[in-house]
Design a protein around this nucleic acid. Structure first.
Lengths: 166, 166
DNA sequence: AAATGATATCTGCCTAAGCAGTAATTGCAC
DNA sequence: GTGCAATTACTGCTTAGGCAGATATCATTT
């Protein structure tokens, strides 16, 4: 049985982790998106480009899993990026179902030029935080993600798991 | 000048607060939404109902500000909730531009019946966390939100503020 | 009090995300 | 090896969110 951090008698939505995470996400987007849009990029386009830079070569499937984005929607974002010459698609050689994505030189240049802007916005958001706080914040978020990822995967394979913790 | 928590030379998207927050948000939704949908509610419907329960009576404007939701989209979600008899709209008495929202008895019953499900999912997500961790996590998220909220409001009134921190 | 500007809600339009179904390919059981 | 289930990417359809304008009301200035 899981710990009872929240109890019905005392629960207020606005102090719950769920609400706070949702709000943080929205505020971070509002912080970043205008800067990207000025340079002609959407947030999802940026996400894919930076992921390609960090991961060298990847398939749409990996991006869907990492960013929990819809597979159909992703195909269309990749279409846009390919049309503008920032990445290329190649059928996977080991597994022909897959599509290997890699940045073109122009794409690499574009993403590198965006990085300072994004870092600036990130540092802007965390200006009041000490290094220790950022480190602890990172640790807690990673821990939450890791736990949820594992639990959700488990629930997908065994439907009974959804009530298992009740 | 803000602290330089992130530097271009060492930046990896997957260890940044921005990415981690986005991912947490997505995973929390995946955790909660199926349970709500089983009971015939969407996430946004739940959000409005619980906010009304906590805040007694509120206007759409407050919900937009709190949840950073589009005003037009919100009108339509409220339409749905009103049609199903869970809340009622009244023109504001002090200010006739505003609309006062309040739960009907049926609406209150509905939201109360959903709370255990939601708490269960929240506790499920935080099962590995100690009380101290949850408290610190809450504090850090609140701090981030508060900082961003203030900074974004400032940027809205004075456009120069967007580069002020560079 | 008249005029101007700001605020709150709503409406229509457009884009993007979510969902279901398809085709191609692979892995596995037998 | 054949058959069957699972995986990957894509396509069409539906729905919800984002954006720009319209309307009604209020606040402020003169």
């Amino acid at each position: 049985m899981s710990k009872q951090h929240y109890k019905a008698a005392t629960y207020k939505a606005r102090t719950s982790i769920g609400y706070l995470v949702k709000r943080s996400h929205a505020l971070m987007l509002d912080n970043l998106e205008p800067a990207l849009s000025e340079r002609g990029f959407t947030f999802m386009q940026w996400v894919i480009l930076i992921y390609l830079r960090d991961g060298i070569a990847v398939n749409p499937r990996d991006i869907c899993a990492e960013f929990r984005h819809d597979s159909g929607a992703l195909t269309r974002v990749i279409d846009q990026l390919a049309e503008r010459g920032w990445l290329e698609r190649n059928r996977g050689i080991a597994d022909r179902r897959k599509v290997d994505l890699h940045l073109t030189p122009a794409g690499r240049k574009a993403v590198e030029s965006l990085i300072p802007t994004v870092l600036d916005k990130l540092n802007f958001a965390l200006a009041d935080f000490s290094s220790t706080e950022v480190r602890e914040f990172t640790r807690l978020l990673t821990k939450l993600n890791h736990a949820l990822q594992q639990r959700l995967e488990g629930a997908a394979t065994s439907p009974a798991a959804s009530t298992e913790h009740v």
